[in-house]
Design a protein around this nucleic acid. Structure first.
Lengths: 347, 347
DNA sequence: GTGAAAGCGCTAACAG
DNA sequence: CTGTTAGCGCTTTCAC
């Protein structure tokens, strides 16, 4: 039924060279005459040969497999757009570089989360791990992965992570600053900030940026009240309701991500408020959520796919030894304030 | 630095048996004394041994790898919630069964889409493929996969697929019928239906169900006008605007998925219509999108995670030979109308 | 430049 | 019940 797949030996026979030579050609190694090289490629084409990745891994001791650890829960909400976008970008780059990607959702508050991450390393023989927040700032997790022989790349590390491994991300502080300034320029003076979970350092920096913008505008720190959410839609609903029900409610709600901003929008609608007439609301990330809701969210664009891609590139460089002992490098990608319909001049 | 990982031979030595015996214990094979079995497990624990999946694949000729083909585009919108939920369910079951999952977005209208799918088979040595719509009804693709030696499981096949491989899904016709009846009972008489892409057969069945509900209520086929969307938010915006701008616009818009319903909602808002006061809108799938928008969508719940899980289970059964030549089996999962705020009695 | 030989860690007959 | 013997398809020294 199914014809047996051709092996490297079939190619060697067909092109009348030794197996070793075929291997060299396949891997772009040196010391092969151009003529022979072509002969081999021709045989590969003729036989429709594909290297067997399992065999290659076994022999070479290199699995060429990378893991992407996403903070979420198998049982809970499906991956958010945030996670999907990172995964997509990472997958794209892996395909291009000939690596395998294993995306793994890990609940950020599971007591055995660290074990779960290391499990991926030991069971699947991954050579490298991409950590997203809040794992990206877990210094001892990074250390554990290294101890298992794995390389590490970080997405949006905010603190500790910055000095422990390669990283990618935007300037979150500047992002927070910029969206706040947008609101300040619209005349807003009473703000509400809905933060994310503790430990998500890059998101906390967005708050720092907000405070800086306030200071630059000569506004007191008291002009912003803070509520702690957990990045979910539901927490956005709750925290926003609490703030908006007050007698002197904020005229602008700044949320640490789009999902919570969508929740805030829902609460405002439920309270019969006009958005952006009575209250302005902003998100962060610029995931599709921000376009889907009404009114569409003003938010800060983060190039998530590019971030996933860049993380893979950095990690692949370490794994393959190309950037063996270069110092850790953080590549900062550009962010951008995107103004849509959820913000307007203060009432 | 990194201690070399223990191999099966280390375990064999440690427990004073032959390598074969260890292998048997590891794989739950028969013919091992209980006492020996325990001794081996103990050694495994003591050494913290893990089988090397690459070596196992190579020796056993079984990669234990499954692929999930998702219709979408690497360059376009990140995976929708629909795809993420399927992936999550599939991943969960793969982990439980000791299989590897490779999720692969493939643009449904790429000219080389078939090649792209087969590539996953040949390059990654997958043993089985899960096809989602519209690939699930591509008879020749299914055939091609089989020719490559792969097994196939289908998610929501609507036509051809039903008789070609194992499948999972809900009764889409009934789902369409039920949501339509909900609207009819609310007194609606003028409907608009926004369909999905051609070839997505299961989604077309939702329309058939709608028509049946109309018939049962003694309503003429003319009471519904149809517009073709493509499952994207944007197409929902456009098609809904077209319909709602007419002089005698429908009072109820039935959309073939949640994303388009979200788009319809946006258009209605943009036209200054009150939802659900002036127009009711329904989605399909019950992804998180339906909760995030305002008002939250009445929709038909599809157990997407369960579907992903069931597809893996079916596929794993075929791959491992457990269900070798059983006839193709379609497992129908329950759906449910979820009434939220986007529907109300006709004006 | 090229090839021969020796494994990588495991499963799978086949003997006992 | 247990062990011996061959490989799976590839990379990698090390000769030539």
């Amino acid at each position: 039924m199914t014809a047996k797949k051709p092996t490297i030996d079939d190619v060697a026979r067909q092109s009348a060279v030794a197996r070793t030579t075929v291997s060299r050609v396949l891997n772009g190694g040196p010391n092969v005459r151009e003529e022979v090289r072509e002969r081999v490629w021709e045989a590969v084409r003729a036989l429709n040969y594909r290297v067997n990745p399992q065999a290659r891994s076994l022999a070479g001791g290199q699995s060429r497999t990378l893991a992407l650890i996403l903070a979420s829960d198998l049982e809970a909400q499906p991956n958010s757009f945030y996670a999907s976008a990172l995964e997509l970008g990472a997958l794209r780059e892996c395909l291009a570089l000939g690596f395998q990607l294993m995306a793994r959702p890990v609940p950020q508050d599971a007591p055995d989360r660290r074990r779960r991450v290391l499990e991926v390393m030991s069971v699947q023989r991954c050579q490298g791990v991409i950590l997203t927040p809040p794992f990206a700032d877990d210094a001892s997790l990074i250390e554990d992965i290294r101890r298992e022989g794995g390389h590490v790349a970080l997405i949006s590390p905010g603190g500790a992570g910055r000095n422990l491994a390669d990283g990618v991300g935007i300037d979150d502080e500047a992002g927070g600053h910029d969206i706040a300034r947008h609101l300040i320029q619209l005349g807003h003076r009473r703000f509400g900030f809905i933060s994310g979970i503790v430990g998500h350092l890059s998101a906390e920096q967005r708050f720092d940026g907000l405070m800086r913008a306030l200071g630059e505008a000569g506004l007191a720190a008291e002009s912003v009240q803070v509520a702690r959410g957990d990045f979910t839609f539901r927490s956005g609903i709750e925290q926003a309701r609490r703030m908006l029900e007050q007698s002197s409610a904020p005229t602008a709600l700044i949320c640490a991500n789009d999902d919570m901003a969508a929740g805030a929008l829902s609460s405002a609608h439920a309270l019969g408020l006009d958005i952006p007439g009575q209250v302005s609301i902003t998100g962060f990330d610029d995931t599709p959520v921000s376009e889907i809701v009404w009114p569409p969210l003003s938010t800060v664009h983060q190039p998530l796919k590019d971030m996933g891609q860049a993380a893979v590139r950095a990690l692949a460089g370490r794994v393959s030894g190309a950037s063996r002992d270069a110092p850790w490098r953080f590549s900062s990608l550009p962010h951008q304030v995107v103004v849509r319909g959820s913000t307007r001049a203060a009432p």
